[in-house]
Design a protein around this nucleic acid. Sequence first.
DNA 1: GCATTGACGAAGG
DNA 2: CCCTTCGCCAATG
Length: 127
Amino acid sequence: MPKKQTLKKIIKQKKEPKKFSFFDDVYDVVRQIPKGRVTSYGAIANYLGTKLSARMVGWAMNAAGTVKPKVPAQRVVNRNGMLSGKAHFSTPTKMEELLKKDGVNVEKDTVVNFKEIYWDPAIELNL
DNA sequence: GCATTGACGAAGG
DNA sequence: CCCTTCGCCAATG
């Protein structure tokens, strides 16, 4: 995991032959989310130094299911702890099921005790 | 190449 | 406290 870097720099990298892009970075972080914990798009964006571009994180997740080592996108929710992306899973209930399997209680498309199991990469990975 | 959209988030009314 | 607007930037038409 590289240190914080500006999105512009990441974009620049994207131009490089190297395939390391913003998305790969996002995937990498998401894969490090411990079981039973969740985080938000904004937190990841913040960790990558682009906190104002949380949308890009979500956009990156859009391809999460298409990449090789599948990304546990179910552990990534919006700032309210709502499963905003559940519609993008194979089935609308898949995300919830996966979370519950992780030991995360979900109620009405929202993570219970979200704040308590919240995992912030910028803090946990502390850079 | 401009316009629209999007799994977000903060700020303003 | 709910709703709207704006910023962010890649992808898509």
